[in-house]
Design a protein around this nucleic acid. Structure first.
Length: 320
DNA sequence: CAATGTTTAACTCCAC
DNA sequence: GTGGAGTTAAACATTG
């Protein structure tokens, strides 16, 4: 067993499952798909813990990619030579970390045959995702920088408007985690009245450098990662937030439930508040860059504004 | 040959 | 206690 202590928290194992980590990596890419090597890279960049014992965790990670239906393989196109396929998240894996823990999902995502809203067969999903990737790229090219909010999943395929990716970064960073080994963030962060809801849309970057000792914000990783973390468009892990919003998918003004209701989504009530409105609210004091100097225990992280009202559960695509 | 991908198995941990 | 999720290890196949 590795000895805890003496080193910084950065050396501790992040409270994420490999599935979470992989999903983060995939989500962080503009095309929402990455080759294996890039997934490795993403994880090692963000989490120093994974810079060691690479054989071990990379094997585990590959196991997860193959084993879990939520990951689909996308063949390289002829113009994308290289080894291995791209990996993407299945468009329908909308409900996984519903219990608020990214260490443990409640249900393993399994492709559901009856799900006609999104491709169910891996091959279909792959084709679908590749198409989406193209769209993203073209949108990217068109805008020059960031993808428009309404560009991806709602195109072509009638994705439920309430579809919420389980790994949407705003879900991830907004949580208070149950830390393994009793290492609770609540000891490091003043916790508001109640345990933060899984769906709280806390401010982008609020977790960087505050309660996340085991990871580096991209800004401090290496200069080879030219992500402007100072921008409110980037959240934890240096993950660009906007693209993570899964196209079309606007962040509702109310918290997005991790656990959808079984009832097939008559969509949330019209939610006029688009993502940028929410994301751009990040208080300057919580900018990832500024937090770099505060990585140590000192300054209590102010949980940014939270949306506390629990939202109704949404439809789950996971088999029960 | 190394990286990638698949599969099986044993194990721990946690929710129910 | 049980079942399921996650981790780790290992063997093996495939591919560039």
């Amino acid at each position: 067993m590795p000895r805890p202590g003496r080193n910084t928290y950065s050396d501790q194992k992040p409270p994420y499952s490999y599935i979470s980590l992989t999903a983060m990596a995939i989500q962080s890419s503009p095309e929402k798909m990455l080759p294996l090597s890039e997934i490795y890279k993403f994880i090692m960049d963000r989490f120093p813990y994974y810079r060691e014992n690479t054989q071990r965790w990379q094997n585990s990670l590959r196991h997860n990619l193959s084993f879990n239906d939520c990951f689909i393989k996308i063949p390289r196109r002829p113009d994308q030579p290289g080894k291995g396929s791209f990996w993407a998240l299945h468009p329908s894996c909308g409900d996984m970390f519903e219990n608020g823990s990214f260490l443990r999902r409640r249900k393993r995502f399994k492709v559901v045959k009856s799900d006609h809203l999104a491709p169910s067969k891996p091959a279909d999903a792959a084709q679908y995702l590749q198409q989406q990737a193209k769209l993203r790229l073209s949108a990217l090219a068109a805008t020059g920088t960031h993808l428009p909010q309404m560009s991806t999943y709602n195109l072509g395929v009638s994705q439920p408007s309430s579809f919420k990716h389980p790994f949407a970064i705003e879900n991830i960073i907004a949580r208070e985690y149950k830390m393994p080994g009793g290492l609770a963030f609540s000891t490091m962060q003043p916790v508001p009245a109640a345990y933060p809801l899984p769906n709280q849309l806390t401010t982008v970057g609020s977790s960087i450098g505050t309660g996340w000792p085991h990871m580096y914000s991209s800004g401090m990783i290496d200069t080879a990662t030219p992500i402007s973390v100072a921008s409110s468009e980037y959240g934890a892990y240096g993950v660009p937030i906007k693209p993570l919003c899964h196209g079309g998918q606007t962040l509702p003004a109310i918290p997005v439930p991790i656990k959808p209701t079984p009832a097939a989504v008559p969509a949330l009530p019209a939610l006029p508040a688009p993502i940028p409105t929410i994301l751009s609210n990040s208080p300057p004091s919580l900018s990832p860059t500024s937090s770099q100097t505060a990585t140590s225990q000192s300054s209590p992280a102010t949980p940014s504004e939270t949306l506390t009202s629990p939202a109704p559960a949404l439809h789950s695509v996971a088999v029960h």
